[in-house]
Simulated assay, not measured.
Amino acid sequence: MHTISSCPRHRRHAIAALIACTASLHFAAANAADVSITLPPGGGFSVRSSGGTDERLRVQSDGAVLLPALPASPQQGQLACFDGASGRLGNCSPAAASALAGPTGATGPAGPGGATGATGATGAQGATGATGSSGATGATGPIGLAGATGPAGPQGLQGVMGATGLTGAAGATGTAGATGATGPAGTGGAVSAVSMAAHNTAGSTIAVLLGGTNVPMPQAQNLGGGFLANGSSDVFTVPTTGRYRVKYAMRTTASTLASARVLINGASYPALTEVPSTSTNRYLGETIVTLIAGSTLQAQFYGMLGSVTLDGGAGATLIVEQMD
């Protein structure tokens, strides 16, 4: 191995000094060609300090370049790299500098938690999310307490009047009243014995139909000269032809708009008909009419759907007497 020791000392610590010193050995060709140093077999090239004890640069026979004093040199702030193709030294590229970083080490244990920072300002409210699907219906809860009773509703429409019940049995005949005073003497002939009187003194309730309902008069009957009453005591038959005075009276416990009349042979007779314009509970009628034998008479309420209740005592009266 050959050692260069004649170069100036201020150039021994750099590669540039080596090149310049080597060039001075071949001063005849310094500007004509590169300096070439041929290493002996198994030997290397070494640059040492002036005392020859400290090796500064060494090139091995296998091409390895050593800088033995480099670890003791002050640290520098830049990296030096070489080009793999040409062997040129220079600044490292960003990629090379990044490659010099070692693999990421294992994550260290988490440090103790820091103090809680101050609460930040409330952020703006986000948009309302979509409504989720309805959940399953829960079990039925217990029945609550009964609520207070509500006010009474309006009165419903009156129902259809039921059929008239059977006529009750005739009551016992009352005691005869005191004899009235004798009337004035008549101007005509003898009074006819063909006459009748019938009453309803039981305070009966009559179901009234629009077409008419007969009023039974089974009490205090006095039928003379052949007058007849049917089984319900609501139709009376005239025995002989003649002129008759017919009068009736009916009284109810409450005022209604029911009408009243006496039918002759099933037909209304205007003089014996009363159609009130306002509610009433008193009905009266009287006239003289010619009747033939077999004619029928019957007193009725009609003209409404409802019921009326007769007064007790003389609640309903029908009197028919032959005039001549």
Rank of each mutant, 00 (worst) to 15 (best):
T175L: 14
D54T: 15
T309E: 09
G111D: 13
T252Q: 09
A101Y: 09
S46G: 10
V275D: 12
A101I: 06
G135E: 05
A99R: 00
G180S: 06
Q221S: 13
P218W: 11
G105P: 12
T241K: 00
T240A: 15
T167A: 09
R11M: 15
A202L: 10
T149Q: 03
G171F: 04
L39P: 00
G117Q: 12
V308C: 02
S277K: 13
V215H: 03
T237G: 08
T131Q: 12
T173W: 00
C81R: 00
L257T: 15
E274K: 13
T278V: 15
Q155W: 10
T38H: 11
G44H: 02
A249R: 14
F82R: 06
A20L: 11
P151F: 07
V208D: 05
T164N: 12
G306N: 09
S204A: 12
A258Q: 05
L166S: 15
G180R: 04
L39R: 04
R56G: 02
T273V: 05
T128D: 08
V235E: 11
L89Y: 06
F27C: 01
V262H: 03
A267Q: 13
A146V: 10
G203A: 10
A314Y: 11
M196F: 08
E321S: 14
A267K: 06
F236S: 01
G117P: 08
M196V: 03
R11L: 14
A169F: 01
T149V: 11
F82P: 00
L291N: 06
P109L: 13
G123A: 01
A178I: 13
S279A: 15
I19S: 10
G129I: 04
S50H: 07
T3V: 15
A69F: 04
T187H: 07
N214M: 08
